[in-house]
Nucleic acid binder design. Structure first.
Lengths: 364, 364
DNA sequence: AACAGCTACTAAATCGGTTTAGTATGCTAT
DNA sequence: ATAGCATACTAAACCGATTTAGTAGCTGTT
């Protein structure tokens, strides 16, 4: 007895050698093999022409045109995976960020993307959310996917990588790493000069989280700038962000503590714009007007800084430019012969953006 | 005569068959072939064991352990590209967004990422910045890179795709597309009810840009809700965002025009939070306090909405959830047999987030 | 003794391109 | 006549895995 078992009947998947008609009908894209059969030439010839390889110079124009025309008509697009495998080049890089939805990372990525796509590269992004095992694992997973290089944004990658690595605000002085760093000394000086010129002496600070790569250097720069300007730092009005998320909430909490200390201050320099926004909230709840009673300076100049009320005075990091620079440097390093020299550090300049959250200090 | 031409001496790149020692020394990762040679078994056996394939069940435990141990020690990681080519599966999808650095797209992507990485998928992101030729071209480039599916965020993809496509706030009713859409009727009702309960009758509106996929449906819903609540819409205080960027500036410009019309209004319902933020700026410059003189309602609930001053009342779109849902749906569609049924539309619910930018209408 | 059936593997095809080495053909120069 | 050379290609290896079909060796059964 024969039974028709409907759910066992499966459309046979045509192999790559099958006729064009079959491939197209089944939704498969046109392969080099079928294209070659269609024009009656070898795969080699077609490949050489499609890629305008040096080897194609002996192929006459008429034949080249024939091939190109057929490729166009059949909408042939070389399978990128097959090409990657053979050429041992993926035209892909990996980007590791703390959290993709954060304004900081988003701006850097926007810059990265700008340069990469232009050069025919694509990229994978992964957010590690400060989980150590992911920070370890993601670079390996990315390399398994044959990325040609890595960009780490605000992330201290510790596992050595087989591929070039560019860090944006990441670690310092690791072998094989190019660091894109801000001129922190200048950044601190810009902010501190601005505040002292406005007459502020009692300045509160919010330091970054301990895990953030910029925290230490930024704080050191602030201390140096303060000293140079003759400002003494009162440790009782120095707070530190705590927690792994990046929401204004963190700045809010720290600022509440600063207020609770009872210590007077007329200005506050926050670790970043996000925490400055939370700080302003807390200051207002504590009955201070911004900037009449307390001036607030942020850091980064994320997009929403300009549209706060009051608009935030901040030290601008050129984040998009840093992303572009990272991508550019990485591609150069990829193209360079192995063992070639590479830049260990590239310094970019901050800029003070004066808006409405700072004003002259209230007379004591 | 023999000459030593130093710069022509090139390290020979060992082939995959070469000894382990050679591969590791030259920085190449360990291949299946070299691993197999190392343990004295065939590539097939090693592959079966590594992947725990059904075919490995006839291989005794001792041998399996031997293989696994060697793999661990040599830090063998299968080349993902080779695997993709053979299996015809890339475990990669493509995500098309207007601009990666925008809060809206960033939140959706964050949700997408959450689900994808968990399932072993990676993704490429591309920002088209509303350029038509890129909206056409990127999906093709992504398919060339063998993505198994596409997610389009707030983007009307028109070229038919060979792979499953999920649109978040994208087009409607295209064959082959699953749309993740907000319940716009409910969204409009929530906002309008809130405003009318507060006593507002003269309400200004900011519509979205013509190219934005949500503009039409949202406006229709607002009109329906207004009618149901007995509110008449005064077309002279209905503005529309213009320009392709997404900065508060656009909302600022429109609101300036609304004010210039001279027509009175006590509330404003903006197309999104970004434009609401710009609108507040313009209203303030026009001498109105928020919310005493004018109440403002935004849309989306992007991260910075809560930290505006005043904190923004807004209709929350569950953006992260929409991203997760999109990823989940896409993976289900990828796993489904070709030709299988799939959801055409998935509706998600908005939520009114009452903050400080709305208050009772000033008595006339 | 012959055969089936199981165990423990392996050989070889395959994915879809790229690239190297080679070959057939026709032409020119000796 | 034939070596030499350019032209116009092609055959086949290769990238690094997965996967199918098959085989050698052993045990147990009739």
């Amino acid at each position: 007895m024969w039974e028709t078992i409907a759910h066992d009947i499966v459309m046979p998947r045509p192999k790559s050698g099958t006729s064009l008609r079959a491939r197209k009908a089944s939704g498969l894209s046109v392969s080099l093999k079928s294209l070659a059969e269609h024009v009656g030439l070898s795969q080699a010839a077609v490949s050489l022409v499609i890629n305008s390889s040096p080897g194609a110079k002996s192929i006459p124009h008429r034949t080249q045109e024939l091939i190109r025309k057929a490729a166009r008509e059949l909408n042939y697009r070389p399978n990128h995976i097959a090409r990657s495998l053979r050429q041992q080049r993926s035209y892909t890089i990996g980007v590791v960020v703390p959290e993709i939805s954060e304004g900081y990372a988003a701006l850097v990525m926007s810059g990265i993307e700008d340069h990469l796509l232009q050069e025919g590269y694509f990229y994978f992004v992964v957010s590690h959310r400060h989980r150590d095992e992911l920070i370890q694992e993601y670079p390996l997973m990315l390399q398994q996917r044959a990325v040609e290089g890595l960009i780490a944004v605000d992330t201290a990658i510790t596992s050595a990588s087989q591929v070039p690595l560019v860090a944006v605000s990441g670690h310092r002085e690791l072998p094989g790493v190019t660091n894109i760093v801000l001129d922190h000394a200048l950044a601190a000086t810009l902010a501190m000069e601005h505040l002292t010129k406005l007459g502020h002496r009692q300045i509160a600070f919010i330091k970054g989280q301990a895990f953030s790569s910029d925290t230490a250097i930024r704080w050191e720069s602030v201390r140096n700038a303060a000293q140079a300007l003759g400002v003494t730092i009162n440790e009782r009005i120095v707070g530190q962000l705590e927690g792994e998320s990046s929401s204004p909430e963190l700045g809010y909490v720290v600022t509440k503590k600063l207020l609770a200390s009872g210590e007077p201050f007329t200005a506050l320099f926050a670790f970043n714009d996000i925490s400055a926004i939370g700080a302003i909230q807390a200051l207002r709840e504590g009955g201070r007007s911004i900037p009449q009673d307390v001036s607030v300076v942020g850091f980064d100049d994320i997009q929403s800084a300009a549209f706060q009320n009051p608009a935030l005075t901040t030290v601008r990091q050129p984040l998009r430019e840093m992303g572009m620079l990272a991508a550019e440097t990485l591609l150069l390093r990829i193209a360079a012969p192995p063992g070639a020299e590479y830049p260990k550090e590239i310094v970019v300049q901050p800029e003070l953006i004066c808006r409405a959250s700072t004003a002259t200090a209230p007379s004591a």
